[in-house]
Amino acid sequence: MSPVDLLLDLLLGLLLGTVGGLFGIGGGLVAIPALGVLFGLDQQLAQGTALVMVVPNVLLALWRYHQRNRIVFRHAALLSAAGFACAWLASLYAVELQAERMRQAFVIFLVALAVYNLSRLFVRGPTPSAELRRPWPWLGVLGGAAGALGGLFGVGGAVLAVPVLTTLFGTSQLVAQGLSLALALPSTAVTLLTYAGHGHVDWSMGLPLAVGGLLSIGWGVRLAHSLPERLLKGLFCGFLLVCAALLALE
């Protein structure tokens, strides 16, 4: 790898780390289309390489969110366990799929999720809180669905978990983003191992991305806690649409 490529990877990691901290997703949603567009990686290789950055980013962001917004252990543990099991099974299936169809399916999912979240901005719902409106064992269902999504696409589990937690479980955006990180950590780790075992990881590119992400993710977490709830939700919707557009243009 040339010094220029190394510098580009570090700068991209800095950007993605900030975005991952801001939205509680680890940065992989931007990394995947960026790796495809800028470096010409196919879908599976882009997903596997992005996970090299996402796993340590999620770990650090989870700790930062817990410091500012205490995460309930039993909620996080149930999400994590269900997400881990389903992510592992889905990742075994994903590595054998056609890359182009995976990318198209992910674009459709992101657009649908963005439209749903945007509609929620104009509907007055119950006041968000740290307490769940649904019995906490239902988090296992959410964890399983989000984990399967993350295992299939490399990322995306946290993107599904955040709106479900705010809408159906009644949590605030910040609480939802913290819990989504707890869900994402084991599922992204097992997905990375599966992709690496099938040769879908470029470590020389992924490691500099990870270093850049670790240096900047704290900035995104601090920014998330300084923004109004409604603005943070609106930025999250816009972020989903940008990611969908980048993937569609890849």
Rank of each mutant, 00 (worst) to 15 (best):
G213R: 00
D9S: 14
L223Q: 09
V37F: 13
V72D: 12
P33R: 09
V211L: 15
A76Q: 13
R133I: 06
V155I: 12
G83E: 03
V242F: 12
A184H: 04
A210S: 11
L113I: 12
A224G: 08
A158V: 08
V54M: 08
A130I: 01
P163Q: 13
E131F: 10
E96C: 01
G48I: 10
L247R: 01
L181C: 06
L246K: 15
F239R: 03
D42H: 11
L59V: 15
L6W: 13
Q67N: 08
F23Y: 11
L181I: 05
L241Y: 09
P163T: 11
R230D: 13
R124Q: 14
L12Y: 01
G199F: 11
T167H: 14
G234T: 09
V95G: 11
C243S: 15
R68I: 02
G147W: 02
V242G: 03
F23Q: 05
G125Q: 14
G157P: 10
R230H: 14
Q177E: 08
R222I: 03
M53V: 10
L7P: 00
H225S: 12
N57A: 10
M1I: 04
A161K: 13
V211Q: 07
H75L: 04
I71W: 01
R120Q: 15
L10W: 07
V107S: 04
G154A: 06
N69I: 03
G36Q: 13
L78Q: 01
V242I: 15
V190E: 08
A82W: 01
G220S: 07
V159W: 13
T18E: 00
V19H: 00
A112I: 05
S129L: 03
P33F: 12
L35G: 03
L181N: 05
G157H: 05
L97W: 08
V4E: 15
R134V: 15
S80A: 15
V221K: 06
L35N: 04
L38R: 07
L11G: 11
V19P: 00
R120P: 02
F169A: 07
L214E: 06
T194I: 14
I217Y: 00
M102R: 02
L121P: 03
T191F: 01
V54Q: 04
A148H: 03
Q43G: 07
M53N: 06
F153V: 04
L240Y: 05
V164N: 05
A245F: 14
L240H: 07
A112F: 10
L78H: 00
L207H: 01
V72A: 12
V54Y: 04
Q67A: 12
E96S: 13
F239H: 12
F236S: 06
P135C: 09
G220P: 03
T191W: 01
V52Q: 08
W138N: 06
G21V: 07
V55R: 01
D9R: 08
A34T: 14
L59M: 14
R101C: 00
V52Y: 11
V58L: 09
Q44M: 13
A85M: 13
R120N: 10
G234W: 07
F236N: 07
